[in-house]
């Protein structure tokens, strides 16, 4: 009951934020929501037991696909966002047949290498992609209107949250959790391991592509260096680790916390914020290995302050 109230309150705040904040705050929250969606998408793949380092790669592919289709072919910008998602999902589908045969560190390294391969390919097709200098859009989406952009990003983050919850409350949860636990048991219990890995890989990559597309249209440009920046991999991972992996709430809390702290730190010491950022992550990983959300949630469960939530409990185990 109390939990539903908190959720309702957060939704109301998120929806009404532009009514009482200025451009600067909206901008910060737009950026936090972008990373929140990436963090959730990374976590969803992690729930299958596969550590993906391809987040920045599929983010970049989606960004490029949607910008190029507007710049080169005059596509409608809003439709082009969907193209970004579809393109990243499609490439993930093709590559999935190869990379999803790999496990553990081999999967992780290969997805990281793919990110690099994507950016090299884009650099080399300069006629179409603008090469190393990238492409600039005539204007940001919605003529750069910060309120509209905020709502667009909010929709994307909301979509990520909904997908994450659908994963948690459906048979997908049982399949991917079983796969993460023990693939042999999963297979002999009737689970088509490859099908589920491919499904999650494609849907999370499509989501990353969508986020990339939105981000690129918000800033009205793409270039290989900044669009495939490892920030789009490392920050989402840090957020999920700090908040708590294998859950929806963890990455949300992590994104809000790290997003706000780093904004604040940027003000008081430019660039120094990265050091503090690193320290927070080290602290959380060392002392709260299950993340902030799971740790607090379990404490509250033990003291019976909130009712049992089996999913969250399962996730934090």
């Amino acid at each position: 009951m109390r939990k539903n109230l908190i959720i309702l309150l957060l939704i109301v705040i998120a929806l009404t934020l532009p009514l009482y904040t200025g451009v600067y705050i909206l901008h910060i929250f737009s950026s936090i929501l972008i990373f929140l969606a990436l963090s959730l998408s990374w976590d969803m793949m992690l729930r299958t037991g596969q550590l993906s380092f391809g987040t920045a790669g599929f983010f970049g592919l989606g960004a490029y696909a949607s910008v190029l289709i507007v710049v080169n072919m005059g596509f409608n910008p809003i439709l082009s966002l969907l193209i970004g998602a579809i393109f990243s999902g499609f490439i993930a589908f093709i590559l999935g047949f190869i990379v999803l045969r790999l496990r553990e560190i081999y999967f992780a390294i290969t997805t990281l290498a793919l990110t690099h391969v994507f950016s090299v390919i884009i650099r080399n097709f300069s006629d179409f992609t603008g090469g190393a200098s990238g492409k600039i859009l005539a204007s940001a989406i919605f003529e750069g209107d910060p309120v509209k952009i905020y709502y667009l990003v909010l929709i994307v983050a909301g979509l990520a949250i909904i997908i994450s919850e659908v994963f948690k409350r459906s048979r997908i949860h049982y399949a991917i959790n079983a796969i993460r636990n023990d693939e042999t048991t999963a297979k002999s219990s009737g689970i088509d391991v490859f099908k589920y890995l491919l499904f999650v890989f494609v849907s999370t990559s499509a989501l990353q592509g969508l986020v990339g597309a939105v981000y690129a249209h918000q800033y009205a440009f793409v270039n290989p260096e900044s669009t495939f920046s490892l920030n789009f991999l490392l920050l989402p991972i840090a957020m999920a680790l700090v908040g708590g992996i294998y859950s929806t709430n963890g990455p949300i809390i992590g994104a809000l916390l790290l997003g706000l702290i780093s904004e604040y730190l940027k003000l008081i010491m430019p660039y120094g914020h990265l050091i503090v950022y690193g320290l927070i992550i080290v602290f959380v990983v060392l002392f709260l290995p299950r993340g902030i959300y799971s740790t607090i949630h379990n404490k509250l469960l033990k003291s019976n302050i909130i009712g049992g939530d089996k999913n969250a409990n399962t996730a934090s185990k």
């Binding site: 049982y174 959790n177 079983a178 636990n181 023990d182 002999s188 219990s189 009737g190």
Partner: peptide, 26 residues
């Protein structure tokens, strides 16, 4: 269907959830 000589339970699940996995997918 088969069991394993050294049991291979799904550790993130409860007893009944382990059995549900068989019902859901098998």
């Amino acid at each position: 269907a088969r069991t394993f000589q050294i049991v291979r339970p799904l550790e993130n699940f409860t007893a009944i959830e382990n059995i549900m996995v068989g019902a859901l997918f098998g």
